[in-house]
C-alpha cells in the first residue's frame, strides 16, 4: 500500500483502558498517515468514542501508548497542550460556548493560544464560517442556531486552530435527521481537501464515500479493519455484517423517503 510507506501521523499501540472494573479498550493498535480518513463504527458501548478521546487525552488510559508525530500523548505529559492544539475535535453535543458569539467561539483558540490579533483572527474565522456556510450567523449566540448550524460552527472552531488531525465523535447522532446532511456535506468537503480525519459515526453512506479504511469495533476491541469496498460487500466478520444490516435498517426506518 502506498500509505504504509509514509510515516504515520498518529500511532496507537497496545492501548488498554479500564473504567473501574470495566475493560473499555483492549489492546488497540491503530495508525493513520497524513491525509488518511478512517471511519470507526460499531455498536454502542464498543469503545469507539473512547479511542478518539484518548487521542487528545480527554480520557486517561492505563497501558499502551498514543503518539502524535512521535510525541507521546497522555493526560500528564508536558506536550499535552501543544498536542491538543494540533488535533481538532468535534463532539456529539457540539459543546459551543454559550456565553460567546459564534465568531468569538471560533476566534477564542487562535486569539488566546496562537496569539493572533483580533482583526486577523476574525478575518480567518469569517473565511471558515463561509466554508461551513454560516458567514451570515457570525454575530449570533449559539442558542439562536439550530443543531446542524451549531455543529458546523463547532467544526469551524476546531479548524480555526489549523489542526493536523480532526477527530469527529459521532457528530451527527444528536441531530434531527434533516440536519444530518448539512453537517456531513461539510465533513465531506473537508475530506476532499485532504484533511486527516478519524470519524466515529454510523453514517454508512459517508463512510463508503470518504473512508480509506473502516475500523469495526465491539467489546472494546478492534474486530475488523477493512477497505470500504470489502467492508460493505460483506467480506468481513459476522458481527460486522450483522451491525451493517442493523444500521441500514434503522436508517430506512427513520428516513422512509430515502432509497
Amino acid at each position: 500500500m502506498v500509505l504504509a510507506a509514509q510515516r504515520p501521523i498518529l500511532e496507537i499501540a497496545g492501548l488498554n483502558k479500564w473504567f473501574g472494573a470495566m475493560h473499555a479498550l483492549r489492546d488497540i493498535d491503530l495508525s493513520i498517515t497524513a491525509g488518511e480518513k478512517i471511519v470507526v463504527c460499531g455498536p454502542s458501548g464498543s469503545g469507539k468514542s473512547t479511542i478518539v478521546r484518548c487521542v487528545n487525552a480527554l480520557e486517561r488510559y492505563q497501558t499502551g501508548e498514543v503518539r502524535l508525530e512521535g510525541r507521546l500523548v497522555n493526560a500528564d505529559c508536558d506536550s499535552l497542550l501543544s498536542v491538543r492544539r494540533e488535533v481538532g475535535m468535534v463532539f456529539q453535543s457540539f459543546n459551543l460556548f454559550p456565553h460567546l458569539s459564534v465568531i468569538d467561539n471560533v476566534t477564542l483558540g487562535p486569539r488566546k493560544l496562537l496569539k493572533i490579533g483580533r482583526e486577523e483572527a476574525e478575518h480567518r474565522a469569517m473565511e471558515l464560517l463561509a466554508r461551513v456556510r454560516l458567514a451570515d450567523q457570525a454575530r449570533k449566540v449559539p442558542s439562536q442556531l439550530s443543531g446542524g448550524q451549531q455543529q458546523r460552527v463547532a467544526i469551524a472552531r476546531a479548524l480555526a486552530m489549523r489542526p493536523k488531525l480532526m477527530l469527529f465523535d459521532e457528530p451527527t447522532s444528536a441531530l434531527d435527521p434533516e440536519m444530518v446532511k448539512e453537517v456531513l456535506d461539510v465533513m465531506m468537503s473537508l475530506a476532499h481537501e485532504g484533511m486527516t480525519m478519524i470519524c466515529v459515526t454510523h453514517e454508512m453512506g459517508f463512510a463508503r464515500a470518504v473512508a480509506d479504511r473502516i475500523v469495526f469495533m465491539a467489546d472494546g476491541a478492534i474486530q475488523e479493519t477493512a477497505l470500504p469496498e470489502a467492508f460493505f460487500c460483506g467480506d468481513c466478520c459476522a458481527r460486522a455484517r450483522q451491525f451493517i444490516s442493523h444500521v441500514m435498517k434503522e436508517r430506512l426506518a427513520s428516513q422512509p423517503g430515502e432509497p
Binding site: 487528545n56 492544539r85 463532539f91 459543546n95 459551543l96 488566546k112
Partner: peptide, 15 residues
C-alpha cells in the same frame, strides 16, 4: 456547567 464545556475548551489546547 456541563462536562462538555470543559472538554471542548481542553480540546482546543487551553490549559
Amino acid at each position: 456547567i456541563g462536562k462538555g464545556q470543559r472538554e471542548a475548551a481542553a480540546s482546543l489546547g487551553l490549559d
